Simulated scan of single mutants.
Amino acid sequence: MPTGVAIRDARQQLFDAADRILLGSGPSALTSRAVTVEAGVAKGVLHRYFTDFDAFLAEYVLDRADRMDPHAAALRDAAGTGTVTGNITEALTALFGSVAVAIVALITFRDELRARLRHDWPAGIPVLTEAAQIIAAYLAAERDLGRISPAAEVDSLAAMLIGTAHLLFADRTGPPPDTARVHRAVTAALSSALP
């Protein structure tokens, strides 16, 4: 792209390019050059907004974690409607059908990125930690409504559900699991908590 041409929301353009690369080719293909080429911008654009590529990646991961708010609102609003297993199956399928699994692989793949993220996100892995909190809040709401056992340990159940879903969706070489498979896993994980 020629110098001097205005770019609307360059940061978002770069983040969206990173999504496409991660989903299409995985974390090993994510380089500053690949991102700028995919975004259709000069390489200097990335360095105009970020001190280096790992700073870009850290902000990218945190941006994607922040985007979980609509998922949180949708799941929270589902409390008391449908079935608990159906609502969680839908939420997990949406989460792991997105860039979330690829972001986990990216964080695991890059030591410097993990080190930078510890400053802003001291515990857990962004996206997965946020998702576990969303599911725990939903389960707490369902517990308050009497749709799951009053003794249910919602934080433990949420972590178990995230781990289970991550294992189901982690294989990028094959097709993602179908809804029925995710639903069976959710039902098994919640069996002791459902009335």
Rank of each mutant, 00 (worst) to 15 (best):
I88R: 06
L92R: 07
D144Y: 05
F169A: 00
G80A: 13
A115R: 15
E112P: 10
R147S: 14
H71V: 07
L30P: 05
S32H: 13
A42T: 03
D111Y: 10
A29K: 08
A72Y: 03
E112F: 01
R118A: 14
I107C: 13
R67P: 09
A74F: 01
A170R: 11
P195G: 11
I134N: 11
H119G: 01
P195C: 09
I21P: 04
L22Y: 02
L168P: 11
A6T: 06
R110G: 01
F15D: 13
L14E: 11
V101G: 11
A39K: 06
D54G: 06
A78T: 02
D54I: 04
A136L: 14
S98M: 03
I107Q: 11
A152T: 12
V84I: 08
R118S: 14
A18S: 08
T108W: 01
K43D: 15
E112H: 03
L106I: 06
V84P: 14
P175M: 15
G146V: 14
D63W: 07
D144H: 09
L22A: 05
R20Q: 12
L157A: 13
A123I: 05
A152M: 10
H183R: 13
L168W: 10
T164H: 07
E142M: 11
M68A: 03
R8E: 07
T173H: 06
N87L: 02
D52N: 11
F53K: 07
G80T: 11
A58T: 10
F96A: 00
T179G: 00
I107L: 10
P177G: 14
G44V: 03
H47Q: 09
R116Y: 01
R33W: 00
D77I: 00
L161E: 08
G97P: 07
G86L: 04
I88A: 06
E38R: 08
A136N: 08
H119T: 08
R184D: 07
R110H: 05
T89E: 04
I103V: 15
A140T: 12
L30F: 04
A137Y: 12
A141K: 12
A141I: 09
R114T: 03
R67E: 15
V101R: 06
S192C: 08
D69R: 04
Y49C: 02
R64L: 10
E153H: 15
I148S: 14
T89K: 10
T173V: 11
T187N: 11
E90C: 00
I162E: 06
F50Q: 05
G82E: 03
S25R: 12
A105P: 01
F50A: 10
I162K: 13
H47K: 03
N87I: 01
R143N: 13
L57A: 15
Q133P: 02
L113N: 05
G24T: 09
S191I: 01
D171G: 07
L113M: 04
W121K: 03
T164S: 14
V37G: 02
D178R: 15
A55I: 01
P175N: 10
S28W: 00
M1C: 02
